[in-house]
Nucleic acid binder design. Structure first.
Lengths: 338, 338
DNA sequence: GCTGGCACTCGAATGCGCCGAGTGCCAGGC
DNA sequence: GCCTGGCACTCGGCGCATTCGAGTGCCAGC
């Protein structure tokens, strides 16, 4: 087990490195943090920390930089979450309050997060899985063509074309619309399949095919839309990455474009609380030198999606975590209101 | 006026520079293109071209690179549009054919363009201005709360909440829905305002306030959504920009995030044909070292939006233009079919 | 167990010289 | 009049040696 002072030294190294972006040496450390001991002592502690794998030297005779393991310890034990100041909170709230619809909420959230953290922000659209159906609308566009519109409680709208096997009259359509909504309105997506299972039975035989087609399209929509979408912003902040960055930035940009990858990363943990993935803890290779801070958010306590930021492992964890948490909280409020 | 050979020299310079990314000298030129004259002659031509401002030297005793003016001449007079090969066309068609909804069409188009051109692709969502109303749906969510859903002929769906000044019964709602649709379905957005002007007159006095509120929300939606959205992809290709690129890439990423800027640039010309904006021709400062190739696309001949790519001024113009044109054509087809 | 001292290491920065691609100009030839 | 070969000149890039200094590890002493 590491002594208290060694942990302090690690903390100081992380803080200085994050601030200066340069390997930190023993002398600089004692000058900037009053640890009450001499550089020589700190050197011993550093050697010990290096043995344990918490820090490393980029090359002999250079200062030390934290390893992923070092950051991990820092995040878990040494640093808290830095709360936002009151003015910051007000600014967040004001900025988000102006949103007019769901897209706008998400777009504003992305901008806000990117600005606050000066990193790349990722916001997942509220998931359909845990949300409920507000309404299903059916529109007849042609005798054998129906448009299905699904409206969720989070304000999201999805539409699908349905080509019917047989012509379908307006009255039948109205009938189906009414019955369908009486069954599924207000219900959870996951419950819908059972709820509509026997619905075709109540219809005329010649209409049953069409009803079944519509229903299966509806179910498809529910499933497909679980391949959730997300919005990304602040990629310009990647340019602050590092000195060597042409090599670093490319795979990151590529990974960010692969939304599937990000969704997988975000979804990896069910825990709606704050998650920090550091460097190689990220399964995706392109993100091995980045850290991802994410947290669930949602209306009324229950998390329906995640948001977070992607940045260099050398990031201000307490500040970033504070910003992410605060934004998630306010977005949840906004969603609950609307 | 420049002699025929000097134009040839310019063309050769552009081609070589685009290929090698390095300033091109007189000797290399005569070796790679059989111009039938000696390097010394080419040098004279180059000096002339430089006087005219078509090419420049990065520093004394280096090769020449084209200026924006040089590229402009190249695009206008010296190069055509390189058509896609048959296999490429098939690939484009196959890739786009798999799309299931409008979002998907746009997403696939972006990916496709980015891959084909190895540059940043930008696709504007089909504009509402020139499209027509397919259907307006009204849903009662609470006694004094109505959701308005607008469906366009391009398959786009927009929804808005309406808080009514007074409770509004289901029958009144159905009535409004029917009357509204009989007037606006199939009509152009621009025509809608006149078409619904006197609609409230036909309703009971106590309902007129609500009807007016709903209508004004509808009109707002039409206008607001003219602030069109767009999708961007292939930003990872920015890393191929150049050697000096940390300085170059940053403002580009920033400009790309400012969707307003891009929309403005795309919208600057009404011409639905192919537009090429080179370097400083782009009003936005961050894009001064990029060129934008864009073209209108749309279902059934009429352009409803634009798509294009953003790349370094040093790009393969004929190839890029060919790809952009081909993609636009096929996207138009897809939209016309659905 | 902490501290000051000391020798050592090694990357970054600096300076220097060479090389070669590329230029401009000029005199001569078709 | 235009093209060509020749020639002197320029200047950035590259390789190399040198210096400089931050930082280290170790050791003897308090």
């Amino acid at each position: 087990m590491l002594s208290e002072r060694r942990l302090q030294v690690l903390r100081a190294i992380v803080q200085d490195y994050v601030g200066t972006e340069e390997p930190v040496g023993s002398k600089a450390l004692t000058e900037r943090h009053n640890l009450g001991v001499s550089p020589a002592t700190v050197r011993n502690d550093m050697a010990a920390l290096e043995d344990e794998g918490y820090i490393a030297q980029p090359h002999t005779s250079a200062g030390r930089i934290p390893t992923d393991k070092g950051y991990r310890l820092f995040v878990d034990k040494l640093a808290g979450v830095k709360p936002m100041t009151a003015p910051e909170r007000r600014a967040i709230q004001n900025f988000l309050d102006g949103a007019v619809d769901l897209d706008d909420v998400v777009a504003r959230t992305v901008r806000l997060l990117a600005q606050l953290t000066r990193q790349v922000a990722v916001v997942q659209y509220p998931s359909l899985t845990r949300s409920t159906v507000r309404h299903v609308e059916l529109l007849s566009l042609a005798p054998a063509r129906v448009m299905l519109v699904l409206i969720t409680d989070t304000g999201r709208v999805e539409q699908r074309m349905v080509d019917c096997p047989a012509p379908f009259g307006e009255t039948s359509l109205a009938d189906l619309r009414a019955r369908l909504n009486s069954r599924v309105a207000g219900r959870r997506f996951t419950d819908v399949p059972q709820l509509v299972e026997d619905l075709p039975d109540g219809f005329d035989p010649e209409d049953r095919g069409t009803v079944a087609t519509v229903l299966s399209t509806l179910l498809e929509t529910l499933v497909e839309e679980n391949e959730e979408r997300l919005m990304i912003g602040g990629t310009a902040n990647l340019t602050r990455f590092g000195h060597d960055f042409p090599l670093t930035i490319r795979p990151v940009l590529e990974a960010l474009e692969e939304q599937v990858v990000l969704l997988k990363l975000l979804g990896e943990t069910q825990d709606p609380g704050m998650t920090v993935r550091i460097g190689h803890e990220n399964a995706h290779e392109g993100l091995n030198s980045t850290s991802i801070v994410s947290v669930g958010y949602g209306s009324g306590g229950e998390a329906v999606a995640k948001l977070g930021v992607v940045g260099p492992t050398r990031m201000d964890y307490p500040g970033t975590m504070g910003a992410v948490r605060a934004v998630a909280r306010y977005v949840g409020q906004i969603l609950a209101e609307s």
